[in-house]
């Protein structure tokens, strides 16, 4: 239900302007500029990267089910649109869909999760004098972090466990009992290995994707409370050295930004980086989205911007092609994309 709700919500929000694979790319958190742009324009950034391991086949199966249920329908261009039935169904499950913060924690989530779970496994075992166990995560970086962290706190394990309990209890209380219970079942501790997704699916009679997403929701909740509330000093430690930011600039765009800051011209940047104009333009759009200050009007004058804005209003669309067809032919795709970024700021 949760997964299907999210899908229907996405298709409602993108309003037939994008294909079904763009929603797939959103859910797995593809780092393409188009996907990041979509997430913002259509206000679905909270779903960005919430399901990294989603298999394309499983995604297709879910979509087909939604079509069969008549919540979604395929239009002439093979794009999916929400039906009346879908709309009323979605309204009935709306509250369930809150609680994700995908784009915001895209770079933090996986590491935070693994650090926390491995630490709990470590400290619950060692505090019972059990020093030999098979770790649930064998990621090198995570292991190193937990090692250092553990060294610091091993003398006070009782205190640490108590504080962890206090924080987890408080944070999970903000979820439903079912969601909290699943979250607890997933944790691996002393002589108790956490449930697999299949087991959760059996125990709670929910689909595997729903179980996965409910767990994710729990972790997003932990990330949010530790950021905004001072009652979670312990959880905050697990985000150490992780940059919480809206999907950061790609490496390559960062280089372009540096050249830009050194006042190199567009042409020079192309030459220095030996990249095509198109690629540099992609970087600029990416930079425009991330940086608070971007010199939009170096690339489009206010008349052009107003013209594009006008079309967005009158046609009610973000579709590049449609906008392009309705503005002066001299206005480029690049300019339209920049204008849209500015429009959404």
């Amino acid at each position: 239900m949760l997964f299907q709700g999210i899908l229907v919500d996405c298709f409602q929000k993108i309003n037939q302007e994008r294909t079904s694979s763009s929603v797939y790319n959103l859910l797995i958190g593809k780092k393409a500029i188009q996907t990041i742009q979509d997430a913002r324009f259509y206000h679905i950034a909270d779903y960005y990267g919430i399901y990294p391991g989603l298999a394309k086949d499983d995604y297709r199966i879910q979509l087909n089910q939604l079509i069969e249920l008549d919540y979604l329908r395929e239009d002439n261009e093979k794009k999916l649109q929400i039906t009346k039935k879908g709309r009323s169904w979605l309204a009935s499950c709306k509250t369930n869909l809150d609680g994700f913060a995908g784009a915001k924690y895209a770079n933090v989530m996986e590491t935070f999760k693994q650090r926390l779970l491995l630490f709990i496994q470590t400290i619950t075992n060692t505090s019972k004098k059990q020093y030999l166990f098979i770790p649930i995560s064998d990621n090198y970086e995570v292991e190193q972090f937990v090692k250092g962290f553990y060294k610091q706190y091993k003398q006070r394990s009782k205190e640490v466990l108590h504080q962890l309990y206090k924080e987890l209890e408080k944070a999970l209380s903000g979820l439903s009992d079912l969601e909290a219970s699943m979250f607890v079942d997933r944790i691996t501790s002393y002589y108790s290995y956490g449930s697999s997704l299949q087991q959760l699916s059996q125990d709670y009679q929910l689909s595997i994707p729903d179980c996965f997403l409910i767990l994710q929701k729990g972790f997003y909740r932990l990330l949010r409370v530790q950021e905004y509330d001072n009652d979670y000093p312990m959880l905050r430690l697990f985000t150490k050295n992780l940059a919480i930011s809206d999907t950061p600039l790609s490496q390559t765009a960062q280089l372009t930004l540096r050249l830009l800051q050194k006042k190199h011209s567009f042409k020079e940047i192309m030459q220095i980086r030996r990249l095509k104009a198109n690629t540099i333009q992609d970087h600029l759009v990416e930079i425009a989205m991330h940086e608070a200050e971007f010199p939009f009007f170096d690339y489009l004058d206010s008349a052009i911007y107003e013209e594009i804005k006008e079309v967005v209003h009158s046609k009610q669309t973000y579709r590049l092609k449609e906008i392009k067809n309705n503005v002066n032919p001299d206005i480029s795709y690049f300019q339209i994309r920049l204008a849209l970024v500015l429009y959404n700021k």
């Binding site: 709990i120 619950t124 505090s127 019972k128 466990l161 962890l164 309990y165 987890l168 209890e169 999970l172 009992d177 079912l178 909290a180 219970s181 699943m182 979250f183 607890v184 079942d185 944790i187 501790s189 002393y190 108790s192 709670y204």
Partner: peptide, 13 residues
Amino acid sequence: PLNWRIKLQKTLN
């Protein structure tokens, strides 16, 4: 599921 707090206590020794 109502007993999740008890489970969490157990989990955290």
